[in-house]
């Protein structure tokens, strides 16, 4: 099987999958932009039920935010490890990233449950509707990211994640850092700038 050499040469010199991921991230920015704008437009418009001041637990969410930030650091280290062909540390850092992501999700599950107990539901007011849909969409993105990282981990244990496949980790990393950055924006807008 000969590869037509031309198909591996690209106009920009970058791998197509990388440009594809950047384009996807650009598209996602508009999705989160719409969700965050809607949250802001409806800020303070709720006519019933609990809103930000009564319910948001900033110290708790600061911890989960810190956890997610640290996961980005682990992600960087995982990419560095796979690039230099260090199988052991690739696995360690991929597992760490996935674990920190899961801890973040655990915090979110706890937060959502606590809010519902305190009377903030999807239905009760505009804050509930916008808050849960915005943070829930973000949480779903984190969950997809965790699954992706775990899949890479499995591939590593199958011996299919050598340095020649570093791009696979890089793509997951791009996605992961993006989801992380979106959370920084959400944390600032929803929690800090009440």
């Amino acid at each position: 099987m000969t590869h037509a050499e031309a198909t591996h040469r690209t106009s920009t010199g970058l791998d197509s999958r990388k440009i594809g991921m950047w384009t996807f991230i650009g598209s996602e920015c508009l999705l989160f932009g719409s969700l965050i704008s809607t949250y802001l437009v409806y800020h303070g418009k709720s006519v019933a039920g609990p809103t930000t001041r009564e319910i948001l637990n900033i110290p708790l969410t600061s911890i989960s935010t810190f956890v997610l930030l640290m996961s980005s650091l682990a992600m960087v280290l995982a990419l560095a490890a796979v690039t230099r062909g260090d199988t052991l540390w690739t696995r360690v850092w991929l597992a760490t990233t996935a674990a920190l992501g899961s801890v973040f999700l655990g915090f979110q599950v706890y937060e959502f449950t606590a809010f519902v107990h305190e009377g903030l539901t999807l239905q009760v007011n505009l804050f509930g509707s916008t808050f849960f849909v915005l943070t829930g969409t973000h949480g779903a993105h984190v969950a997809v990211g965790v699954l992706w990282l775990l899949s890479l981990l499995v591939r590593s244990f199958q011996g299919k994640l050598g340095p020649e496949k570093a791009l696979n980790v890089e793509l997951a990393g791009l996605y992961w850092h993006f989801v992380d950055v979106v959370w920084i924006v959400i944390f600032t807008v929803v929690y800090l700038l009440q």
Binding site: T38, V41, Y42, K45, S46, V47, A48, L122, Q123, N125, L126, G128, S129, T130, V133
Partner: peptide
Amino acid sequence: FDRTFGTNFYVVAAGGD
């Protein structure tokens, strides 16, 4: 979400626009 879960995005009575 409005139709399925009863959220308030387009519900005027709940302050929606």
